[in-house]
Amino acid sequence: MKMKRMEAMPFMILGAIVLITILAPLLAPFDPEMIDMQNRLSAPTAAHILGTDSLGRDTFSRVLYGGRQSILLAFAATLISMGIGTAVGFVAGYYGGKADLLITGISNVFLGIPGVSIMVAFAGVLGPGMNSLLIAVTVNSWVGFSRIVRGEVMQLKHANFIEGMKSVGASDGWIFIRHVLPNLSDSLIILFATKVGSVVLSVASLSYLGLGLQPPAPDWAIMISDARPYFREHPLLMAAPGAAIITFVWSVHAIGDYMRDKLDVNKGANDAL
């Protein structure tokens, strides 16, 4: 599929952000955590092109570093959720019966608790930080994947080619890896993009409230939270990380939308997620 220039934009933007984030140590002119009280709240200068914050840390360097933890966290947590969700959804959809009943029951419980409540609960019980965020996001997201996979596997398992594979003696594992997984990839990619975007957003909300990633880590949400008292006099302190996070999440969502339109799988079902 050949892309138009407009359609390629989110891919290029996301690529650029991920690249900049990975290369931040090479690109940043200053150490993002270096405090310089002589130069606090400085306006943009040649050295500090976006100025400095209330502790004299370079805003530009902090923006470059600012996505590292949350993007990594979002990708890792969503990948783990996808793995668990796919395996569980396959078992439920393929074997049916009691396994399906049990899994659907458990899924309904997790669907019945608002996602942010789960995240808040884990942040509260395990203490704020990377690990509790990872667990909270995974506990929260696997259900979305398992539901989609279960539904599709239930349709797939009666397809002729699967019945055929079974009749020539292929094992269930082989059928799953070689024949079911490739058929699921479109739905999984779309859901993955949607989830990564929303995970970055919910992690940011928690970090903003002091329940997620912890200062002095250079993180976009923490920067916005730190900049709140200086918003009127130094709007750049908030605008720079704000623009970064919005651009990142927008590009991920735009890619999700693009894939959905192009691949056109289960339109209604995926729109809801």
């Binding site: 975007g197 940011a204 909300s205 903003y208 916005i224 918003f231 009127r232 927008w250 991920v252």
Partner: peptide, 26 residues
């Protein structure tokens, strides 16, 4: 409108809150 919808989903709530507070309160 479709682009607007994607944008609305992409703005963190706390950013939007700060923007609204700046406009309507401050």
């Amino acid at each position: 409108l479709r682009q607007l919808c994607t944008l609305m989903v992409s703005i963190p709530g706390f950013c939007m809150a700060i923007i609204l507070i700046a406009i309507f309160s401050e």
